[in-house]
């Protein structure tokens, strides 16, 4: 049975052979795989430029065999703007965490989306700063315990979870704004379709396509990967409901 002609799921060649540095079960790996599969299926491996963030996704360039730029913290949309304007025949996407996109990089993402740059934004919202040891992010839930909110996020002290994707959906520069997740086979397949649509949009001069993926950070959340998936279902989805916010 183990013959190439019988294979119904195999690793795409757009993924390199490197073992990802991510913690076991981390959603970053799943989203990398989906982007790689979309690039493979669209046949655009030599036409795609990724912009990696500061955050756990910083080494994305080690895992997808495409052209990459590595941006300063939060500045991926600015680099992607330049890459796309100078190379309009290329598919250009940013890959950003919630600390990168919704905290230090808020200005860049808002203005790139408001200008309607013809880029794809992949936004990994795990409600925490994973890379630096699990500090509160703007997206951290009310009551969520992090390294910097040991008694839980308190709105009087820390404000409210920032629903930046809802804000971005209001901007006339965006054409497709959606919130997905990747914790079971159904949601993984849906998220892949969303990423594909976003990549296709970027060549249609319709404006910015923005795909949020609600993900887990089991290390930051101090849970096992399987527990983290359940915690996400129970706590993240009520605050960050899944689905399309805009599709024109």
């Amino acid at each position: 049975m183990i013959k190439p002609e019988n294979a119904v799921y195999s690793r795409t060649k757009v993924l390199t052979d490197n073992i990802m540095h991510y913690c076991p079960g981390c959603s970053h790996g799943t989203v990398h795989k989906l982007i790689a599969e979309v690039i493979d299926e669209m046949g655009i491996q030599d036409k795609t430029i990724g912009v990696s963030p500061v955050g756990c996704g910083v080494f994305a360039y080690n895992y997808l065999d495409i052209d990459w730029l590595e941006a300063a913290h939060g500045r991926a949309p600015a680099l992607a703007t330049a890459a796309k304007r100078l190379n309009p025949d290329r598919y250009v996407f940013t890959y950003q965490g919630d600390g990168d996109l919704a905290s230090i990089g808020t200005a860049e993402i808002m203005h790139a989306c408001n200008r309607g740059e013809n880029i794809v934004v992949i936004f990994i919202n795990n409600a925490i700063y994973g890379m630096t040891g699990g500090q509160m992010a703007p997206t951290t839930l009310v009551g969520q315990v992090t390294a910097t909110t040991p008694y839980g996020r308190n709105v009087e002290l820390n404000g409210y979870p920032l629903k930046i994707t809802e804000l971005i959906a209001q901007l006339p520069g965006t054409c497709y704004v959606t919130r997905q997740t990747v914790y079971n086979p159904l949601t993984v397949r849906k998220a892949k379709r969303a990423i594909r649509k976003a990549f296709e949009n970027s060549m249609l001069k319709k404006g910015t396509s923005f795909v949020e993926v609600v993900g887990t950070c089991s290390s930051g959340w101090k849970l096992t990967p399987v527990e983290a998936n359940q915690w996400m279902v129970d706590n993240m989805f009520p605050e960050y409901p899944l689905g399309d916010m805009k599709d024109i």
């Binding site: 119904v8 990802m20 981390c26 799943t30 993984v188």
Partner: peptide, 20 residues
């Protein structure tokens, strides 16, 4: 049954599935 569920969710893409 070769349904591919396990491979689809694997963050490290380490599962290959065959079906006949």
């Amino acid at each position: 049954t070769g349904c591919t569920n396990c491979a689809t969710v694997c963050p490290d893409t380490v599962i290959t599935v065959y079906r006949v």
